[in-house]
Amino acid sequence: MIIIRIHIIGGAGSGKSHIANLLQKELNIRHYDLDDIFWDNSSEHYGVKTPEDVRRRKLERVLQFDQWILEGVYIKWVEPSLSTADKIFVLKPSLELQERRIWDRYYKRLAGELPSKKKETKEGIYKLIDWNRNYNDTKLSQFIQEFSYKEKLIVLENNMDIYKYL
């Protein structure tokens, strides 16, 4: 068995979940959305974080598997997965594309065309877009520049380009 541990990082609407789902099906490797670990989806309210100790234990359970695909926007608390990953893909498509995808996803969830555990509001989407701009321009760029595991890091504008590296 080939061990494959893939970590995908990118802003909202960068295509992380889409490519992770495709890879899960094609490689037969379980995909874990880090939002499901970070956010308390059982809460009555949108935006409630899972306690840090619970979040850490959940991540540790995933990392015990020989193969996994993790995806999310998170940088700091996921250090154990970054050090363990074989490949780390950072998705940086244009902000225009990301924002179009964010709105498309929101309206599909609202119409019931796309299942969601999230309790999003229009106001929340505006906040997400503002947060995403800062994340891409500042946090993600700084992460790439200062990242310790450069030999594993691959920055892509198009999520489908991941296939060139697997």
Rank of each mutant, 00 (worst) to 15 (best):
G15P: 07
K16Y: 06
N21I: 03
L22V: 08
L34S: 08
D36M: 07
F38P: 01
N41M: 11
S42N: 06
S43K: 09
E44Y: 01
T50P: 05
E52L: 08
D53N: 13
V54F: 07
R55P: 05
R55A: 08
R57D: 15
R57L: 14
K58P: 11
K58S: 15
E60P: 05
E60I: 10
V62C: 14
L63K: 05
Q67Y: 10
I69H: 02
L70Q: 00
L70A: 00
E71V: 01
V73E: 00
I75Y: 00
I75C: 03
W77A: 05
P80M: 12
T84R: 14
D86R: 08
K87L: 04
F89V: 01
P93T: 07
L95D: 04
E99L: 05
R100N: 02
R101D: 00
W103R: 07
D104I: 01
D104E: 13
D104A: 04
Y106G: 13
Y107V: 06
Y107N: 12
K108R: 15
K108V: 05
R109E: 14
L110I: 08
P115W: 02
P115N: 03
P115D: 04
K118I: 08
K119H: 12
E123A: 13
E123H: 09
K127I: 09
L128R: 09
L128Q: 12
